[in-house]
Design a protein around this nucleic acid. Structure first.
Length: 643
RNA sequence: GCUGGCGUAGCUCAAGGGUAGAGCACCUGAUUUGUAAUCAGGCGGUUGUAGGUUCGAUUCCUAUCGCCAGCUCCA
């Protein structure tokens, strides 16, 4: 092999020698790649580069297609450039800023005096198609920082100048397609014609550099896929998400409503209240098994308490205040300070620990207008909140037991995919560093010892201690945070809590804050969307609906109804003078899990004809057998998940 | 809080500077029906609220409240 030749190889495959400086595309061709026209980029070693980049050392090389994660990222990144190109073509006075790839798509932030309208989006998208149709080659070049600054300054792109000024490197790379040039690290598709399936989805304001003190830019969101088919599937998924939206289903199923008189504060209707209370019952069932004691604590407490706990200092902007007897009072945003008072109400022995105090108390937090959404972010809610007071030696077993409860609970609701995050010390925190390290170590140990995979989120802990957040993926593969376990050495200190140890000496307990479902409101939203309103039998507001065929069966239906209710089932009868099909349809729309049809045959034989939601008829059966057949399903969650 | 969008009957949605309309729901009557919509009739609205422009505003303008998308925030 001569000096000016290098060897390129497919991973575990063919190998050829090509001249030094051969482009990645030519190297792939030399290796017999036939689909070079569909290739978006090349992976040289473990770096993804443009097809036009030179290969200047021996390397393995692989084509990158749109069906790989790297390929999709390039498609989306190039689509963001295509978007900026189109905007500059239509509105030359607009300044470009940044345009990154995000989950499921991309966005680009622009500075323009006039905000973009939905009609503008259509025009921009049409222009994007036009530019893609022109199949303009995309070129990469490098230039010195100074030259790049001068270039963008001349172009009037002041945000780009600011960005380059913040880059420490001597050289930066620029990408051009026709008359559009953007600062970018790349890589990009070789030409705009490779972009075949994209769509602009929305426009919104966004702060420059994500800081609310900065000016607001116009952000255009879009999405892109390798093929129109995948784009279509993605858009269908978005439609499905809309169909499942808990705000829509909540209205249709008569679960809850919102009223301007109490913004962002849900009113649960009878059916919603059944689900809500049944969830709470489920948690209470777990508490009985895991040794928790439930308490009830006041809604309004002296501001001094919140100053002592540190909440006033950190969260006063989000608290509601009131006054009584010339004392400043606050509506509780959390239960923990109350539980500290309760703990300190008596002398505690090490024999009392761990003390697990649960509280479904209603919490109020003033959330800034604009951040609230349906049941997922409200101003009035309650949590399956509990605080465990224990000795440092008990931390491990207590956290492990909470993890056990969590996983059992997520299994019950069908949340089989989980993601777990360890949040460490945030910037604003109380307690000394050694305390924090000890606490972080303790949480990490529990997870590692049980072989539970997790990621670290630095600085994401609560102000009083580190935490583990438990997230799940719902049926739409969206991630939601549910449970949390937070270690706290600070509050016991602030409230000067202690217990008497085996040696008769005072010792400081550790406090563990934990929740399984988190806010019940939010959990309901997640559950509604996860099951699309088809609640499991034990949660369904109406479990069984009796449907008579004519009014000759009314008396018998009334008797069956009494029997079902006596068995503890939530049952109702539809005795209206309507055709069977009509009543069935209505029961289906209301997502009633089981319909019992009663006609003359059933009356004569003293049976009912069951029909499961979305299914066909089951054989007629007598009422006691029917009740027995669904008893376990109807109860499963109300006994802490034990049938 | 910020940017943008939207508020018409209980719900879903039309219309639009000159008396506001449909389907569903609801009520009444007929029909007595076997697994996703029987027919007919009726009730229902200060067009979110408050100002302004106009002979006239639901439509145009301003403010305000609420909701939606996103940004920032989330103990």
């Amino acid at each position: 092999m001569t000096e000016d030749r290098i060897r390129v190889a497919l991973a575990g495959g063919a190998e050829v020698s090509v001249p030094h400086g051969t482009t990645a595309a030519d190297a792939l061709r030399a290796l017999g790649e036939r689909r070079i026209g569909e290739t978006l980029a090349a992976k040289v070693g473990d770096r993804v580069v443009d097809l036009s980049r030179n290969v200047d050392a021996d390397a393995t090389i692989a084509p990158v297609f749109g069906d790989s994660p790297e390929g999709i990222e390039i498609l989306r990144h190039s689509s963001a450039h295509l978007l900026a190109h189109a905007v500059k073509r239509l509105f030359p006075e607009t300044q470009v800023t940044i345009g990154p790839v995000i989950e499921n798509g991309f966005y680009y932030d622009f500075k323009r005096a006039q905000p973009f309208t939905p009609e503008d989006l259509e025009r921009i998208e049409a222009t994007m198609r036009e530019i893609a149709g022109e199949n303009i080659p995309v070129h990469r070049r490098e230039m010195s920082r100074q030259d790049a600054i001068a270039l963008f300054r001349e172009m009037g792109e002041h945000y780009k100048v600011e960005i380059i000024e913040g880059i420490p490197d001597d050289h930066v790379s620029l990408y051009s397609q026709g008359d559009f040039t953007d600062l970018c690290r790349g890589p990009h598709v070789p030409s705009t014609g490779r972009l075949k399936a994209f769509k602009l989805t929305s426009v919104a304001g966004a702060y420059w550099r994500g800081d609310e003190r900065n000016e607001m830019l116009q952000r255009i969101y879009g999405t892109a896929f390798p093929t129109p088919k995948e784009l279509k599937e993605h858009l269908a998924l978005l439609e499905e998400a809309k169909r499942r939206d808990h705000r829509k289903l909540g209205k249709e199923l008569d679960l809850f409503s919102f009223h301007p008189e109490a913004p962002a504060s849900p009113f649960f209707h009878p059916k919603g209240a059944i689900i809500y209370n049944t969830l709470v019952d489920y948690i209470r069932g777990l508490y009985r098994q895991y040794g928790y004691d439930e308490v009830l604590t006041p809604q309004i407490l002296d501001v001094e308490l919140w100053k002592r706990s540190g909440h006033y200092e950190n969260y006063r902007e989000s608290m509601y205040f009131t006054e009584a007897d010339e004392r400043q009072m606050a509506v509780k945003p959390m239960n923990c300070p109350s539980h500290c008072l309760l703990y300190a109400a008596g002398k505690r022995s090490y024999r009392d620990l761990p003390l697990r105090i649960a509280d479904f108390g209603r919490l109020h937090r003033y959330e800034r207008s604009g951040v609230t959404a349906g049941l997922t972010r409200v101003r009035s809610f309650s949590q399956d909140d509990a605080h465990i007071f224990c000795t440092p030696e008990q931390i491990d077993a207590e956290v492990a037991s909470v993890v056990d409860m969590l996983f059992r609970t997520y299994d019950l609701f069908g949340f089989s995919e989980r993601r777990i995050y360890l949040g460490t010390r945030p910037e604003r925190s109380i307690g000394d560093v050694a305390m924090w390290e000890r606490a972080e170590r303790a949480l990490r140990d529990v997870l590692e010892r049980r072989g539970i995979a997790f990621d670290v989120h630095p600085g994401d802990g609560a102000f009083y201690g580190p935490k583990i957040d438990f997230c799940i993926l719902d049926a739409m593969r969206r991630e939601w945070q549910l449970g949390t376990v937070q270690l706290d050495f600070a509050l016991p200190e602030r409230f000067d809590l202690h217990f008497i140890n085996a040696d008769g000496k005072e010792e400081r307990p550790v406090m563990i804050h934990r929740a399984l479902l988190g806010s019940i409101e939010r959990f309901m939203a997640i559950l509604i969307e996860h099951c699309a309103g088809d609640f499991p039998l034990w949660l369904a507001p109406v479990q069984v609906r009796l449907i008579t065929i004519t009014d000759h069966q009314h008396a018998y239906a009334a008797r069956v109804l009494v029997e079902l209710r006596a068995a503890g089932l939530r049952a109702e009868a539809d005795l209206r003078n309507e055709k069977l099909g009509y009543k069935i349809r209505e029961a289906e729309l209301h997502k009633v899990p089981i319909v019992l049809v009663i006609g003359d045959k059933e009356v004569a034989s003293e049976t009912v004809a069951p029909r499961r939601r979305g299914a066909r008829t089951l054989p007629a059966t007598d009422v006691p057998s029917f009740i027995a057949s669904i008893a376990a399903d109807a109860r499963v969650g109300t006994q802490g998940g034990v049938p």
